[in-house]
Design a protein around this nucleic acid. Structure first.
Lengths: 343, 343
DNA sequence: TGTCACCGTCGAAACGCTTCGCTGCTAGCT
DNA sequence: AGCTAGCAGCGAAGCGTTTCGACGGTGACA
């Protein structure tokens, strides 16, 4: 193993000088700096992470706590995890993966042991029990998702309300008047998952403004469940011509079922999805969809936590920071003008 | 911050005693041990990770290198990442997430800095350039996937050849004679991804033994691509009655296309998928599928690396270890007896 | 020409933990 | 009785960094 002392000897300087070259925290002459950098490269020196963390009281690690629940579309989680990792690397940080089943104790463990300098929490609930622990430990954190009370916290999320509104607007613009909103399984609403509620609220408010009649139905995302949901919708509101779908699993079945029931998309009914573009592209017809970038979510969370970390180092009080990412509507082949009224 | 010295003072012992209580590496009297444990709990002591790593030359971290490529079904990657994390925790280890874009240098960095005690590599290629780096750094590793040369390495993977064979057997048992194998996009075969080739080989050999005629076609997994692939298959071999699908994205489109073309599953044609059970359950009809447990993959990889770590600590030479997980066939509603010959 | 400030470098003191070797004990043998 | 062995606990020496204070040297300024 090659240590800083080896580099120092090789370059003919003291080890503190090597350290200063590497950190840039003191002025070092051009010449010395070059000599040191060459030695570093030649010896293949990488500072020992443990020693560094101990001396600097900084581990250069952020923890990312991922949910085990799978009602959130899994590829999105992965995309966030990866974008967090890559963004963190850009700041010289690594990412520690921890699972939600460790709960608040996990946060405590990581923070108290100094394993990570900060924590990014995914799938934050309205009243998340990990937040008080975080604050008690004086650990920097960034939340992906919005809790009830965001004071003193950094949060980032999609603007689900805007996404819901966008759906309502698009369908209203096309002349649809009778809309069905196919949402997540009822469990998601029962635990008051913020994203589900905010989407629905955003949709509802805009729908009312635009004079749409609408129906919200939860759906587990399996074929059978979708079939049942669709049947009920068509029984209650046979004139429905627009569908908004927020459950990734229900999209495929819905399209199949509509076709089987003799309805053509988009001539007879329009379907707009709240899902990733990649998924929307996979169906036939390609789906009009409202999306937000999962990558961006991860990147912003990392920026937030880095800002808090540097603020904390400077002794500043970090300000609240609440970012909502604007969703984008991409019009594809699954939405079209409402058919002429026949009833 | 509470240190080991605080605990020692609180319990009225020396800090080395506290350390021995915690590590169990020396005998400590029942009474002292209790006193120390109580102090630990009361003070909420968590050993400082950096100091521990420095002194013990063990970080208690394993790195997990995930691929950025998304031609592998993403939820499976996530499932592996999570099972690795949970299994590692059971051994007192945490997991550091690193992305494949760091490449061999990333492995070098992690190993040389002592950030992680071992590395788990996902999506290992036949001739992976990270492997020599690993060996040069004398870092313990476990591979998920099989490289060309496995000597001196620990690897685990699904037995894709057996999975392919299982598909051939099942269809042969049902009396099908003309089979089409719909695989991954051509890029996957061009880079000689082990899993794709092994599945195909396993399928081919068994198919030949059982006297099946078959066709292999690659497919990108989009709707259009699947449509094109299916059209070509039916043009070349109109009597095809069995489909094996290894591309998650192609499953939905295939079912839709078969229906549109007037073929009923499973009366007219049988479809067997190589995909997760969860996915297989989502379609109508529910798919007969051959699966391996992604969770198990992660768990085994962690066991392997832990074994290597303890062996290395004891100064033993770790033996090669090559585990192939047996796939399971679950018969559902998409396969049935071959229709009577009509031609 | 003396004083001051700054620059570039060095030495040494932490940082919090593990672990080796030592010291009194008590107990079990010869 | 004398010796060894093992138990329980302590003290101190690292582990490899970072960072603070100090120290010559140099140039600017009075």
């Amino acid at each position: 193993m090659v240590t800083i002392a080896d580099v120092a000897r090789h370059a003919g300087v003291s080890s503190s000088t090597v350290s200063y070259v590497l950190s840039g925290k003191r002025a070092i002459s051009e010449e010395t700096r070059n000599r040191v950098q060459i030695s570093v490269r030649e010896l293949g020196y990488h500072p020992n992470a443990g020693a560094r963390a101990l001396a600097a009281r900084r581990s250069h690690i952020v923890a990312l706590m991922v949910p085990l629940r799978t009602d959130v579309y899994v590829p999105v989680m992965m995309e966030i995890a990866i974008s967090v990792t890559m963004a963190a690397r850009q700041h010289g940080y690594d990412v520690l993966l921890i699972t939600n089943d460790e709960g608040p104790d996990g946060v405590k463990r990581i923070a108290a042991s100094g394993l990570a300098d900060g924590v990014i929490l995914m799938d934050v609930e309205m009243d998340d029990e990990r937040i008080p622990v975080l604050q008690a430990q004086r650990t920097e954190a960034a939340l992906i998702g919005l809790p009830q009370d965001t004071s003193g916290l950094s949060c980032v999320d999609h603007d689900f309300a805007a996404a819901g509104a966008l759906c309502a607007d698009h369908l209203a613009d096309l002349g649809h008047r009778e809309i069905a909103f196919i949402g997540y399984g009822s469990g998601v609403y029962h635990r008051h998952a913020g994203y589900a509620e905010r989407t629905l609220t955003g949709f509802r408010e805009r729908a009312e403004q635009r004079g749409l009649r609408f129906l919200h139905r939860s759906c587990e995302g399996t074929y059978e469940s979708t079939a049942g949901t669709l049947a009920r919708i068509l029984a209650d509101r046979p004139d429905t011509t627009g569908f908004v779908v927020q459950n990734e699993g229900a999209v495929g079945p819905l399209l199949t079922l509509l076709r089987t029931s003799g309805r053509t998309v988009p001539e007879d009914v329009s379907v707009i999805a709240l899902c990733q573009d990649q998924l929307a592209e996979q169906f036939a017809p390609r789906l009009t969809a409202v999306t937000g970038s999962a990558q961006e979510l991860g990147r912003v969370a990392v920026e937030q936590i880095m800002r808090r970390l540097t603020a904390a180092a400077a002794g500043d009080r970090p300000v609240d920071d609440r970012v909502l990412l604007t969703p984008v509507l991409t019009i594809r082949d699954s939405t079209g003008p409402a058919p002429r009224q026949q009833s």
